[in-house]
Computed example of a mutant assay.
Amino acid sequence: MKNILYPLVFLFLLASCTSQKNSESFINATSGRYLFNDNEVIEIYFKEQILHAKWRGNDNIKLLKVSDNSFYMKSLNEKMMFIEKPEMHIELATKTEHDGMIYHFRKMKVDEKTPSEYFKAKEYDKALIGFLAIKKKDSLSEVINEYLMNRLGYNYIKNNNFEDAIEVFKINVALYPEKSNVYDSLGEAYLRKKDTLNAEINFKKALAINPENESAKRFLTKLTKKWN
Rank of each mutant, 00 (worst) to 15 (best):
N145F: 06
N155T: 13
V143C: 08
V173N: 04
K194P: 04
Y183L: 00
K194M: 11
I129P: 02
E146N: 05
K126L: 15
L207S: 06
P177K: 03
Y147P: 00
L197C: 09
Y154C: 03
F162V: 10
Y176K: 01
D138H: 12
L197G: 07
G187S: 01
E178D: 13
L207Y: 03
G130A: 10
S215V: 04
K107D: 01
A189V: 03
E112T: 07
S116W: 03
T114W: 00
D195T: 05
F119I: 10
N160V: 08
E123V: 12
K193N: 15
F169C: 02
N202F: 05
A127K: 08
L186M: 04
F105M: 11
P115C: 08
Y147A: 09
Y176Q: 02
E167H: 14
S116C: 05
N213T: 05
E163W: 06
S141N: 11
T114I: 04
R151C: 02
L140W: 08
K179E: 07
K179T: 06
K109H: 10
S139V: 13
M149K: 01
R192K: 14
N159V: 10
S139W: 04
S139F: 08
N159Y: 09
V182G: 00
I129K: 13
I209F: 02
S180Q: 02
D125P: 08
K135S: 07
K170H: 09
N198P: 10
Y147C: 01
E112Q: 14
